[in-house]
């Protein structure tokens, strides 16, 4: 892995998938956690025709300095949850960057060799947890294990803010999902002996 926690450099991330997979809330949770840590943040959603029955994405920027453009064409990292997003955004990751994908929904990952490409079976794992909607949090947990751009505590605080109060009974399972994602990514990172 490349050096991943250079706090001077902003993190420019795109999260993309089908509508309903939790793309926007994944990005929002991360952005909120950035704010908890007094960082500069921006969260730019796609709200266009693609949102109305197709792919959704959001660009999240977390930085120690003021953020210039919220619209980007190149990214440090991508979290992709479906094949069209893989096809669209894999070419737009900067060399040395991270491509994290949901391996249950994506059968043809990118063949680039100049970036780190890591698949997480988050849907399968979410099914095991008996709540498929935790899939996005498993992905977020895995991402944070690989790119610790914010602290764990901040994410937990963010989760409580992003999740509407009537869903707060789901906080524990979301926390579990985050931890599971971290574990999965850690296991994948460790060399097989």
């Amino acid at each position: 892995m490349n050096s991943i926690n250079d706090c001077r450099k902003p993190e420019e991330l795109i999260v993309a998938g089908f509508g309903g997979q939790g793309v926007l809330s994944l990005g929002m949770t991360l952005a909120y956690a950035g704010m908890v840590e007094n960082k500069e943040i921006s969260w730019m959603p796609s709200y266009g025709p693609e949102m109305r029955g197709g792919t959704a994405n959001c660009i999240v920027i977390i930085s120690d300095n003021k953020i210039s453009s919220p619209i980007l064409s190149q990214f440090d990292s991508a979290i992709v949850l479906n094949q069209p997003s893989m096809d669209k955004f894999a070419p737009r990751i900067k060399p040395g960057g991270l491509l994290l994908y949901e391996s249950g929904n994506i059968f043809k990952p990118s063949i680039r060799t100049d970036i780190d490409i890591i698949g997480i079976p988050a849907t399968t794992e979410a099914l095991k947890m008996k709540n498929t909607r935790t899939m996005n949090m498993i992905m977020l947990g895995a991402y944070l294990q690989l790119k610790p751009v914010v602290q764990n505590d901040s994410i937990l605080e963010a989760l409580a803010k992003v999740l509407p109060e009537k869903y707060h009974h789901l906080l524990p399972i979301n926390r579990q999902a985050l931890e599971l994602g971290e574990t999965l990514a850690r296991q994948l990172k460790e060399p097989v002996s």
């Binding site: 943040i41 969260w43 730019m44 953020i67």
Partner: peptide, 10 residues
């Protein structure tokens, strides 16, 4: 514009 209206910042 639509982007400034739709984006989230602190």
């Amino acid at each position: 514009d639509g982007a400034i209206g739709q984006m989230m910042e602190k």
